[in-house]
Design a protein around this nucleic acid. Structure first.
Lengths: 93, 93
DNA sequence: TATACATATGAACAGTTATTCATATATCGA
DNA sequence: TCGATATATGAATAACTGTTCATATGTATA
């Protein structure tokens, strides 16, 4: 029987923020660095960085360092699927 | 292009609470009344009722009144699928 | 090494939220 | 109608969370 409701709540809680969803949407096409994300979303670098940390701690994204830049992408396809399923849900109701 | 990130965030936010997830899990088998849910979860009737209201406002559950009792169930199979997908995600990582 | 750029992080503040408590509403049976 | 039971709800409080601001860390290049 399933009993890790606290973990599951944390997972959904992580998806339950507009900024984090926008960030994930940015990562749909390809990995992106912090500066691109903050540029595209019109948000401060700090705010984006804080939220990327939340996404990473909850294992929704992973990061890759290249020189001064850090590129973020979906942690795995499973997460991406759930994210996309949520979008589909909203679009069809 | 998808742009209803606030609605999507609200949807996930609704799922992002341990109590509400436990309530939804209670509804997996069959519809249940408030008193059964609070009995099973060991929570006050008030707390459960408040959360059921949140679930209903966000259209994750629907209710049906029978005499003194109000029976709650998943609003549609789509929501149920997403809920179950989250559980699967947690179980396989 | 000095400077500029990219990112991370801690503290603080404002806004949100879940539970509790008290109470209101609604329905059933005697 | 009266009492008992089921549910809903408003107010209050405590805990949590997202953004901002200031600053620290890390990396490349001149």
């Amino acid at each position: 029987m399933f009993d890790k409701f606290d973990d599951l709540a944390d997972f959904y809680k992580t998806l339950g923020d507009e900024t984090r969803l926008r960030i994930l949407f940015e990562l749909e096409g390809s990995e992106k660095c912090v500066c691109d994300i903050s540029e595209n979303l019109g948000m401060t670098q700090s705010a984006v960085s804080h939220q990327l940390k939340v996404l990473k701690l909850n294992r929704l994204v992973k990061s890759r360092k290249v020189g001064k830049h850090v590129f973020y992408s979906f942690d795995d396809d499973h997460v991406k699927e759930i994210f996309e399923m949520g979008i589909m849900h909203l679009m069809h109701r």
